[in-house]
Measured scan of single mutants.
Amino acid sequence: MAAGGDHGSPDSYRSPLASRYASPEMCFVFSDRYKFRTWRQLWLWLAEAEQTLGLPITDEQIQEMKSNLENIDFKMAAEEEKRLRHDVMAHVHTFGHCCPKAAGIIHLGATSCYVGDNTDLIILRNALDLLLPKLARVISRLADFAKERASLPTLGFTHFQPAQLTTVGKRCCLWIQDLCMDLQNLKRVRDDLRFRGVKGTTGTQASFLQLFEGDDHKVEQLDKMVTEKAGFKRAFIITGQTYTRKVDIEVLSVLASLGASVHKICTDIRLLANLKEMEEPFEKQQIGSSAMPYKRNPMRSERCCSLARHLMTLVMDPLQTASVQWFERTLDDSANRRICLAEAFLTADTILNTLQNISEGLVVYPKVIERRIRQELPFMATENIIMAMVKAGGSRQDCHEKIRVLSQQAASVVKQEGGDNDLIERIQVDAYFSPIHSQLDHLLDPSSFTGRASQQVQRFLEEEVYPLLKPYESVMKVKAELCL
């Protein structure tokens, strides 16, 4: 049975990233139509530049190519590739079939990587351009969430054990800070992308030097003109047959890092959902379990974690691919890159769409948070109580021993009897502590235990987050809708 299948058929496997999760716009960027249309555009740009620099290419040939950029006979191309065992030459023939007058000058002087690699770089750039505003929107939604809850005390956790208090907004800023680093890295790697350009079979530009009869300047002009037509500021000066596969490492490393950030955020949300302090959106008709109707599973956060793990592992592909590119190139890269580049971007696209949807509907339960604080705060307040007693004339050592005994009794009630923490009640009825009984409410005010959390939130948002989001103001209103 021949390899390949009808990918629109229910009898043929289709990647869930495309069929179930990723956005239509990201799927289109990695589609065959987008790819092969870009090949034709690159052939047109090459012909236009070659004509401008004096090669015998007519206006009629150029116009014929322009008129057929979208006229792609995919069936013919597939048949040609089956016959020739070469995808680029299959599309040269297919393009030439609908451009008979231009057929002889299509791909003039070029090698397969002229269309293959340059198209990949265009796709990487455009895919990054799709991700950047999506990530900015996630940051914006979380920034709104953090600002609104900047002063809401909550129990902090280290080692997932109760620690000092923080605020809900401050905790959210930990998430935002990681995503801001990801946004900066995505922008950097996007701006650092260079075009492969017009380089020939081993990167020496020998074929173009021959076409222009040894004119170095025209060869350099050709490279520059096509690079500018493709919208790049610069091209690699040095290439082998391909652009260095280190570029793929750079791009997928940034995406993998984004995956790590999203995994951490969504894990926190899942843990908070278990504590009943916070939940992701839950639709009115949504079913959490087929057997347990009360369940409210954090399905979206779980999906993000599941896909983020996949995204983090994909960076190993370009690392290994770059390491086995012998001399000017081997074909070890080809099949692998067809999979890992598309999957990385479709996965990143999915987790950003999902995280935006989550961040637009996060639900906080202040009463649950308050109750958990009441359970733990008495123990945390013991040092403040000791200091207040010393100020009232008591002995630190005597007070410490009193607190120690009462704390152990209260802990026994919590752990052995399943009761509430009654340390404060014990202190309130103990005559030894009568000098500070009137101060206990103040000493137990949760806001006095959150330090500068709310001020940190305000400063972080104003100095770091809002300036970073400013270039994306025009796209901030787009909502994230999930079908599944």
Rank of each mutant, 00 (worst) to 15 (best):
R196Q: 14
L341P: 06
S151R: 11
Q286V: 01
L406R: 06
I57T: 04
A102F: 04
F195D: 02
Q184A: 13
A342Q: 09
P471H: 15
R309F: 07
K479C: 14
N185V: 08
Q285P: 10
W175H: 08
S112H: 00
P133W: 14
L124D: 11
L252A: 14
R309E: 02
R372I: 05
K295A: 03
Y472L: 14
K470F: 12
C27W: 10
R149K: 12
M89K: 01
Q210F: 01
E80Y: 08
R329I: 00
F345N: 09
T267P: 01
P318L: 03
L377V: 05
D223K: 01
W39V: 10
T382R: 02
I176F: 03
P153H: 01
S334L: 03
D420F: 06
C113D: 00
D87S: 05
K233H: 08
M380L: 08
Q210A: 08
A335H: 04
P56W: 07
T347I: 11
D333Y: 03
K295F: 01
E401M: 07
T450N: 04
P446T: 05
K391T: 13
E473D: 15
C340K: 03
I176L: 13
A18L: 15
L55T: 05
W43H: 13
L255H: 10
R14I: 13
L142P: 00
T330F: 01
L275F: 07
C340A: 14
F345Q: 04
D333I: 00
L484M: 15
T167Y: 00
L468V: 14
S9Y: 15
M292E: 04
T321N: 10
M316C: 08
A453Q: 00
L352D: 03
I265Y: 14
L121K: 06
R329M: 01
G240V: 01
G104W: 10
E279R: 01
V247L: 13
L209N: 15
G8P: 14
A348M: 11
K101Q: 07
Q409N: 11
L130T: 11
C266V: 11
L130G: 07
L469N: 04
Q458P: 07
F160K: 06
R452H: 06
Q428W: 12
A102R: 00
F449Y: 15
I123S: 12
H91F: 05
G259I: 00
N68C: 10
T111W: 00
I106T: 08
A342W: 10
C98H: 10
Y13N: 10
I339R: 03
R337S: 01
Q456T: 05
Q456M: 08
V363M: 11
L440G: 06
C173N: 00
Y432S: 10
G156Y: 00
N118L: 01
H86E: 00
C304K: 05
N126H: 14
K147L: 11
D6I: 14
F433A: 05
F449Q: 04
R303M: 04
M387F: 09
A146G: 08
C483E: 14
A143K: 03
I105W: 08
Y294S: 01
H310R: 12
N336D: 07
D144M: 15
E148T: 09
R459V: 08
H217C: 09
C113L: 04
Q325N: 14
V189I: 10
K415E: 06
M278E: 02
R396S: 03
D223L: 04
E425Y: 13
D192W: 06
R137K: 13
Q184L: 11
A388E: 09
K224G: 11
I139A: 08
V364C: 14
S23N: 08
T330V: 08
S151Q: 11
C399H: 11
E25D: 12
A342M: 10
L272V: 10
V429F: 13
I269V: 11
L209W: 12
S261C: 07
C173I: 02
L341C: 15
M292D: 00
P24E: 09
K246T: 04
P467L: 12
T52L: 09
K367R: 10
Q221G: 12
T350Y: 12
C305W: 03
E81F: 00
D248R: 04
Q320D: 01
Q320P: 01
K35I: 10
L46P: 01
E277L: 02
V478Y: 13
K66V: 07
V88F: 04
E481A: 15
M389L: 09
N68M: 09
I106Q: 04
K233E: 09
F232G: 03
L362A: 09
L331I: 09
R188Q: 07
L222E: 02
L121R: 01
A291H: 02
C173K: 00
K402E: 05
H97F: 12
M312W: 05
Q164D: 01
T227Q: 09
L42D: 00
S454Q: 10
D317L: 05
S257W: 06
G5A: 10
C399R: 02
L331T: 02
F282P: 00
T52E: 09
A411K: 10
G418M: 05
K229M: 07
P318V: 10
Q241V: 00
L108E: 01
E50L: 10
L174C: 15
G361Y: 14
V478G: 14
E417Y: 10
W326E: 03
S334A: 06
L209M: 07
F36H: 15
N353V: 08
D349L: 03
D192K: 08
N421I: 07
L211W: 06
F433G: 04
N384H: 13
E473R: 15
M278T: 06
L53F: 07
K284R: 12
M89Q: 02
L131T: 08
H97G: 11
R404C: 11
F145G: 06
W43Y: 05
I436E: 04
L341Q: 14
L124K: 13
K101C: 09
M225L: 12
L252D: 08
R196T: 03
Q184Y: 08
I339P: 02
H91P: 04
D248G: 01
I351T: 14
F212W: 15
V475T: 13
Q285H: 11
A103R: 13
L55R: 10
T382V: 08
C304E: 05
K276L: 07
K66D: 07
